[in-house]
Design a protein around this nucleic acid. Sequence first.
DNA 1: CTAGGCTATTGGCGATCCGCCAATAGTTCC
DNA 2: GGAACTATTGGCGGATCGCCAATAGCCTAG
Lengths: 228, 228
Amino acid sequence: MNSAARSPSAGARSPSAPARSPTARIRLDYDERRRQILDCAAALLAERPYGEVAMEDVARAAGVTRGLLHHYFGTKRDLYLELTKDMLRAIPVQVPECAAATTPEERLSDSVDRWLETIWRNREMWLATVGGAGLGRDPEAERIWDRARDISVDSMIGVLGLASPGEASPALRGLLRSYGAFAENATREWLAHKRFTRQQMHTMLTETLLRLVEDVLPAMTRPATTSR
Amino acid sequence: MNSAARSPSAGARSPSAPARSPTARIRLDYDERRRQILDCAAALLAERPYGEVAMEDVARAAGVTRGLLHHYFGTKRDLYLELTKDMLRAIPVQVPECAAATTPEERLSDSVDRWLETIWRNREMWLATVGGAGLGRDPEAERIWDRARDISVDSMIGVLGLASPGEASPALRGLLRSYGAFAENATREWLAHKRFTRQQMHTMLTETLLRLVEDVLPAMTRPATTSR
DNA sequence: CTAGGCTATTGGCGATCCGCCAATAGTTCC
DNA sequence: GGAACTATTGGCGGATCGCCAATAGCCTAG
């Protein structure tokens, strides 16, 4: 645009320079910078939707320029997907395996507890990705989420000792995936609006899952009518 | 633009072109045009995400120019919100009230059935809005959805005869809202991936809601531990 | 049947943001 | 101290959005 008004001296850069030397170019290690950018992006995406967070904003928050973001992550969409993957890596769906001789209910309770703990520690990043800032229905994003959800489903099946991973019926998998949506919504209301206590979250998540697999699933797979 | 398009060889426009002359400026009634634009937007948003549908695309699909879209709806975001409101209007959360003397289970079954029927008839628009093309975490959109979900929650409370609308506990409302997310996910898998049959949908939705209010809710509101 | 007004519709201007890449400047190692 | 290495910058070009003055269908009065 208006590249005019560049005096020959070419000094006097942006007046809003940080307290350091005005043109300090701070050089970080690859992984450090990468992490910092991801954190800044998470913070911004946790408070307003994807479409309203400009790359420029993320860059400014990280104290770098837009070009660097593209250098590290490629597209804005790529940055978002990277953030998603990163979050899914940080919240590895609960692996139970506490002790061998326990009831499924105990394992489930433990598993849910651990999961809530992890979510709570990463709540900002969770809200930035799962919580809905998303870019919606992107095939790649959907693929990532689908895989994560399938892993989560496998984990649930394992915790409850329902079936060998390969043998679960489509109905069961679908049911558990929908339970995942249920849990996500409850978590969002817990984190963003404090509509549940953590105690309530725990009870709700465990009890609901048990009811689904013990009562709802049999009713679904029973082929005959009698839906009541 | 192409004002010379009447030459014989220059025919063969898009096969779906209207029977009018190529450059005809077709003037429609306000409501007609509005509805047509909304339908075109729904069709496009049903197959790819919000960010990848340009206003230009919607305009071309509707056979008009971009400017007209802004004239009718203002911002792109406004258009999307309008579409959402429109969809929520078209799918008025099931009003049961079938007959007076029925059991809650029967009313619920009926209500779910009616809801599934409506969704199926409007599946394209449903997928375009609920189904996830969304713009994510927009405050206005969230407000719209929240109101719709609250109405839906009231409806469920009414169908099951649980409490007078004003007296429902926050826990109940939150639980039912999360059930809404459960139902939405199941519906998406049903419509977009055919992972459930309609029969299964019906059973799953009714049975789950009953289990939630009869078993899970009491466990949540019971203050003591014993979540086992 | 023509003139004139009403308003649906157009076309294009300015601004914002994204994607990229050649040039620049810290950092390290010899 | 100099040279190689690479993190970082700055800006160009393209796509899209938001808007508004000008245009042109359609309807009614005379």
